[in-house]
Design a binder for these strands. Structure first.
Length: 115
DNA sequence: AGGATGACGGGAG
DNA sequence: ACTCCCGCCATCC
């Protein structure tokens, strides 16, 4: 198998956590990591998204903890993310999404991503 | 082997 | 609200 790197199980857990975010809602890298049992590894989430070998991965629903989009303003990626969010009814003001659209809090297990 | 990088986060000034 | 800084960690050079 190809050069295995980092626990592929960790990557799988992260992907599952990302897919668990329903349309019309968003979450943060840190929250996704925590939900995947990898608290503190927010950067690992970013790494997994960057690989992007998962077609059904709703990467656009993953934002910074402060509500900012993942990519810097002006980039094609940021525009695409904003477009996808808008398509799901998530308003983006000045490159950020309001806290009320986030499904992360203190205990993700309690929230259960429900809307 | 060592230093820099980054789709991060949180605290501090 | 913004900038700077440090912690974390897999990759990259």
């Amino acid at each position: 198998m190809g050069t295995e790197s980092t626990s592929s199980s960790a990557h799988a857990a992260i992907r599952a956590a990302i897919r668990a975010v329903p349309p019309g809602r968003v979450s943060s890298y840190g929250a996704i990591a925590a939900r995947a049992g990898l608290r503190g590894r927010a950067r690992l989430v970013g790494r997994v998204l960057r690989e992007g070998d998962s077609p059904a991965l709703p990467w656009h629903r993953v934002l910074h903890s402060d509500g900012r989009l993942a990519a810097p303003p002006g980039t094609a990626l940021a525009r695409e993310q904003m477009r996808r969010l808008a398509a799901e009814g998530v308003p983006v003001r000045k490159g950020r999404v309001a806290r009320e659209y986030f499904i992360d809090g203190d205990d993700l297990d309690v929230l259960l991503w429900r809307g």
